Structures are given as structure tokens and as C-alpha cells.
Amino acid sequence: MSYGVVLAPDDAQAVLAAMDDKSKRIVRENLNKLADNPYPRPVQKVAIEENHVRRD
């Protein structure tokens, strides 16, 4: 699932000011990940079942 949100700089500041510390940390970490890799590939789930590898 993905979605996009575009905020004007003033709106973004207001949203950040209203967040608790944990939410601010999560946003900061995710923005840093995007700065390092702006087009990340989805994480592929791999399940190993009795000599078989299943990719979801």
C-alpha cells in the first residue's frame, strides 16, 4: 500500500509540531532513508518451507 501526501512548508511544520517524539523520530528516520535511496524497491518476503523457497 502506498500513498502520497504533499504539504506546504508551513503545513509540514505545523504537523511536525503537533507530533509526539516517537512520531517525529519515525518521520526523521524514514526521510533519511529516502534521502539515501529515493526510489526504494519493495522488500521481498521469503518463506522457507521444507527444502522449498516461496517468495511472496
Results as ranks from 00 to 15, higher is better:
M1N: 07
M1L: 10
M1Q: 10
S2A: 07
S2M: 02
Y3W: 07
G4C: 07
G4K: 10
G4N: 11
G4F: 02
G4E: 11
V5A: 09
V6H: 11
V6N: 14
L7E: 01
A8N: 08
A8V: 10
P9Q: 02
D10L: 14
D10T: 09
Q13I: 13
A14C: 06
V15I: 12
L16I: 13
L16A: 08
L16S: 03
L16R: 09
L16K: 05
A17V: 09
A17F: 09
A18L: 05
M19Q: 10
M19G: 02
M19H: 04
M19V: 04
M19K: 04
D20N: 15
D20K: 03
D20E: 10
D20P: 00
D20R: 03
D21Y: 02
D21E: 15
D21A: 15
K22C: 01
K22V: 09
K22Y: 05
S23L: 14
S23Q: 15
K24E: 08
K24L: 12
K24W: 07
R25E: 14
R25C: 01
V27P: 00
V27K: 00
R28D: 09
R28L: 06
R28H: 14
E29C: 07
N30P: 01
N30Q: 14
L31F: 10
L31D: 03
L31G: 08
L31W: 11
K33H: 14
L34D: 04
A35S: 11
A35I: 12
A35K: 10
N37E: 13
N37F: 02
P38A: 08
P38H: 04
P40H: 04
P40K: 02
P40T: 07
R41N: 09
R41I: 03
R41P: 00
P42N: 06
V43S: 07
Q44D: 09
Q44G: 11
K45S: 13
K45L: 12
K45E: 14
K45F: 09
K45M: 12
V46K: 10
V46M: 05
A47T: 08
A47P: 00
A47R: 11
I48M: 14
E49P: 00
E49I: 06
E50T: 12
E50P: 00
E50N: 15
E50L: 08
N51V: 06
N51R: 11
H52E: 15
V53T: 13
R54D: 01
R54E: 03
R55F: 13
